[in-house]
Design a protein around this nucleic acid. Sequence first.
DNA 1: ATATTTGCAAACGTTTTGCATAGTG
DNA 2: CACTATGCAAAACGTTTGCAAATAT
Lengths: 137, 137
Amino acid sequence: MDTDIIYKNIRLRGGRITKIRKKIIQILSEMNCLLSHTDILKRLHKLKLYPNRSTIFRELLFLTKNSIVMKSTISNTDYFEIPQDHHHHLICLKCHTITTVDIGNHLQNQEKKLAKQFNYTITNHSLEFYGYCHYCQ
Amino acid sequence: MDTDIIYKNIRLRGGRITKIRKKIIQILSEMNCLLSHTDILKRLHKLKLYPNRSTIFRELLFLTKNSIVMKSTISNTDYFEIPQDHHHHLICLKCHTITTVDIGNHLQNQEKKLAKQFNYTITNHSLEFYGYCHYCQ
DNA sequence: ATATTTGCAAACGTTTTGCATAGTG
DNA sequence: CACTATGCAAAACGTTTGCAAATAT
């Protein structure tokens, strides 16, 4: 597990490794997909941890600010994941299921071009495909 | 202007061409970029139209449901545009400026592949690049 | 011991809804 | 006239904040 690297990183910045923080990182690391605050809360409930919802938000803000997790906003809800293998998402417009997909590193070159053209520092991108899944079409 | 095609489309579905609806379509068509409810309301004010905010939301819902406009949610706010030339977005994480960019139709093939692989009907995709603009980096 | 993290309650901004009224075709 | 669109007020929803108490180092 490279969660240890994350813990070290947090300690270096003066952060503390609390029960809740540790579990949130573990959950995000193991799932390796986009999770909402509710998804995370539900998983914590299964582990007999019942933190306040604002704690989850604050935690996810902390992890985002420290570049440990990446945030994606999909129809008014924030989702979070730890960027491990780089991938994209397939989202059903009806049942809102999010499927993780891999289309390779096609966009690296585009990023470089755009950075030059617009004098931007590009840190990341998000690519979502929308449509109707097997069951909903 | 191909807004006439849009009006026809709306009439066919039993919709009516009201002052506000007409102006919203014109604004979205002329701007050809992502606009929020507030952006649209401000533009309407300049034209001496003062509709209720809920009317804007209902209107944008109507136009989205009828596939006339496309919705993108960026950091918890919905933005809308009429898909004319296909393009993507460059978003500054600090000042939140949205720049329209064109990288060509790279993703058409990927869409087809994914549709087959996951048995999906893909209707569209959104690609956003995040980073820091010229002024904010 | 001290700074960080947490729970709670309240505030905030965006979006949705119910219902009566106005406007379009 | 019949049906759609609108204004208004209130509610819903996700998210943020202030403060006091708890906890990690």
